[in-house]
Design a protein around this nucleic acid. Structure first.
Lengths: 227, 227
DNA sequence: ACATGCATTATTGTATACAATTATACCATA
DNA sequence: TATGGTATAATTGTATACAATAATGCATGT
């Protein structure tokens, strides 16, 4: 317990609950906690050097993120994601990212366009260097900027949720150089459609972009991610 | 927004936190708490006869539902729903209810088809009697059955969230006899498309059905709901 | 009158204590 | 051995105590 004292970790998230939330979330997504594993408040609290209160609050929030399943008076369990769940998420995301790109084309600011430019260029660079953590990070950023640019809180929130949910998957899909580069080309196309304010095209391209991601993923790899 | 409310049951009746959650949620949706109003833990706890703990947990969860905005060390504030939010939700729902109807056409069981039959007939009856609480209730049920019939947990959870979000709106839209009857006709059409396993048609009809609801709503009424 | 600093108060953040519930282990009995 | 029951322990649920932070009010100086 002494080795990982949360109080001394990065101070970017100020409240303990927030830090505990991020930590548990990471541990689920990274696979440290397996599917259906029970998350006990005292154990986690002890490990992180905090009391049960922030752990409880974090678990309640994770339930709403869908990563944890709480059974009253029994416990909190890591929610399983099935292969079908992942495929469904990609179909839903495909529709919504399309809508989002369309709205972004209508509402994006010049600063945001520049931001996207930078992301795309950086991503190209890192993909060539096969520095895939950076690529994943930039992929996240690309989509997040578009979410914001859509100027729709509702759509942004919904998409952010779904996006988080498949973080595990994206780490794997983008860790192949060809896919990383292909993905970046698609990003570029979407960006250009948005820049030229062509909402319909942006929507179509975003639709395809998301579906390509999942198509690219073999069933074998999918199964590996799940279990 | 807290997306996948996997264990709605856990929030319903069993725990104090769940009841407090529902209560505050109701009070926000009913307009008892106004936009940007501060929700103080002690005050609410005193009013409901519970300690701060369940109130805190409920507020944290409401933040994930998007109804409350928590500023660390400051307080919890009611996040208003804007007119634009509502319109956006209907656009998003239109897309997703369409997808849902399509999947339902592929996966629905005979029992569920019968259930929908019953709902539609009952709803016709109550609309004529102008018993609009029943109509709203049956409208909810109709959509929920289709959500379940889609056999997609992801889609069901996402839609359920959005559905909850506009509860206020649906109460008003369906309280006009013509709209209630028209809505029911549309339900019937969707049901028949699903029954005949015509996914494409079901999708198109569901798309239109949702958009009709919002089109039918005057800006004046919308503004009234918000404030 | 206005701004500033300090003490006071209110409110949230975290830890702990106690109650309720559920899981476990052990013994008695057939 | 298998079954059932009861005591015990483990775990969650709720309340409360204490700490940290933010808001308020008042006195003071300019």
């Amino acid at each position: 317990m002494g080795s990982f004292d949360l109080q001394k970790e990065s101070l970017d998230n100020y409240s303990l609950t927030g830090r505990v939330f991020n930590r548990i979330r990471e541990d689920i997504l990274s696979g440290k906690y397996k599917q259906n594993e029970e998350l006990k408040e005292t154990a986690i609290g002890k490990e992180l050097g905090v009391s049960r209160t922030p752990v409880r609050e974090a678990l309640r929030q994770l339930e709403f993120e869908g990563l944890v399943n709480i059974i009253p008076n029994k416990g909190a369990y890591v929610t399983g994601i099935t292969e079908k769940d992942i495929k469904d998420i990609y179909v839903v995301r495909s529709l919504l990212e399309g809508l989002c790109a369309r709205w972004a084309a209508e509402n994006i600011s010049n600063e945001q366009l520049e931001e996207l430019d930078e992301i795309v260029h950086l991503s190209e660079f890192y993909a060539k260097k096969e520095s895939f953590e950076h690529v994943v990070d930039l992929d996240n950023k690309f989509h997040e900027v578009i979410y914001t640019a859509s100027k729709s809180r509702i759509l942004e929130d919904t998409l952010t949720d779904l996006h988080h949910y498949v973080e595990r998957v994206r780490k794997v899909t983008l860790a192949v150089r060809e896919r990383a580069e292909r993905s970046n080309t698609e990003h570029k196309d979407i960006l250009e459609a948005i820049r030229s304010r062509d909402g319909k095209l942006a929507e179509k391209l975003a639709n395809k972009h998301i579906m390509n991601t999942i198509k690219n993923l073999s069933n074998q790899k999918l199964a590996d991610i799940i279990k």
